[in-house]
């Protein structure tokens, strides 16, 4: 398990991270979301030791993350970076060797990953001659080529075409299924919702919510139902109803939905009575709003 414990970081007078804590379990894909400047990249850089934390620590399997552990992390920085004039194959082999792979294994791993990511035919080309999408695939290969125990990917999906998104999602899922904790950040919330087992929402340098999408939906214990049929205003005086927005009725924690249904039937015919499960985009909006006002 990868634990981020109470990490804080200041840049001059800006409090970039304030007591950030969360865990990523083996076999889990963890989605890290938040607006620009919320602290995602800073957190990932601290995990990789590219930045140092002012307080708190990062622990992998009960051990503080040091240079030796970091070598077994696969990292894709937000600022993509490869040597522009170095050949794809040479570059990936070099990075694999820096991660401690012996020469022969490094060569084989480069072959395997570039073929899997569909850039195997470009091994002899300079990186700068590749399209941006293909450069991104090479960048992902650079994060994977040493068979990492942990994957930390900053915006791995930005700028990818739909095919590449599928390939990338498949790879992340497969690595997680093999027991690797995978953290990635993204602004594509639908993708995060579909791909991630758990999600962390960061705002203003603080973690405002962590959990599965289901857990995030029930964060405050309230539930919502879409009710079609009864005349408008039927729910105004029903006990337990917090708010009504068109056909959507929000119930206070612990409210018996059957009692609400009965009240609806008493007001008129009910054609539809359906639990509303907000998508991550809506959850995110609510969480960030309440986080900001808190």
């Amino acid at each position: 398990m990868l634990d981020i414990r109470g990490v804080s970081k200041r840049f001059g007078r800006v409090h970039a991270l304030d007591d950030v804590s969360f865990s990523v379990r083996p076999g889990e894909v963890f989605g890290f979301v938040g607006s620009n400047g919320a602290g995602k990249t800073t957190t990932m850089r601290i995990v990789l030791g590219v930045l140092s934390a002012d307080a708190g620590d990062v622990v992998w399997q009960g051990r503080p993350v040091d240079a030796e552990v970091r070598r077994r992390i696969g990292y894709m920085p937000e600022e993509r970076g490869l040597y522009p004039k170095m050949k794809v194959g040479d570059q990936l082999t070099y990075l694999a060797r820096l991660h401690g792979l012996p020469a022969a294994e490094a060569g084989a791993a480069v072959q395997r990953w570039t073929e899997l990511l569909d850039v195997g035919h470009r091994l002899g080309d300079e990186v700068q001659k590749l399209s941006l999408g293909n450069q991104q695939r090479v960048q992902l290969a650079a994060a994977l080529v040493h068979d990492p125990e942990v994957l930390v990917l900053d915006e791995p999906f930005s700028g990818l075409d739909p095919t590449a998104v599928e390939v990338m999602s498949g790879v992340l899922r497969r690595k997680a299924d093999a027991g690797v904790p995978v953290i990635f950040s993204s602004h594509q919330l639908e993708l995060v919702e579909r791909l991630c087992d758990r999600i962390g929402i960061i705002a203003g340098g603080r973690m405002v919510a962590v959990g599965s999408v289901a857990e995030l939906r029930e964060r405050d214990g309230s539930t919502a139902f879409d009710v079609q049929g009864p005349p408008a205003g039927w729910a105004a005086d029903v006990p337990g109803v917090l708010s009504v927005d068109g056909t959507r009725v929000r119930l206070a924690p612990g409210t018996d939905d059957q009692q609400v249904l009965k009240a609806a039937l008493a007001a008129g015919p009910v054609h539809e009575f359906r639990r509303w499960r907000p998508p991550l985009t809506e959850l995110y909006r609510d969480v960030v709003k309440s986080g900001a006002s808190a």
């Binding site: 850089r45 990789l48 030791g49 590219v50 970091r70 070598r71 992390i73 990292y75 920085p77 600022e79 970076g81 490869l82 040597y83 990075l95 820096l98 991660h99 650079a142």
Partner: peptide, 8 residues
């Protein structure tokens, strides 16, 4: 690329 290198 330095960020990738310094992570290693």
């Amino acid at each position: 690329v330095v960020e990738l290198l310094l992570a290693t």
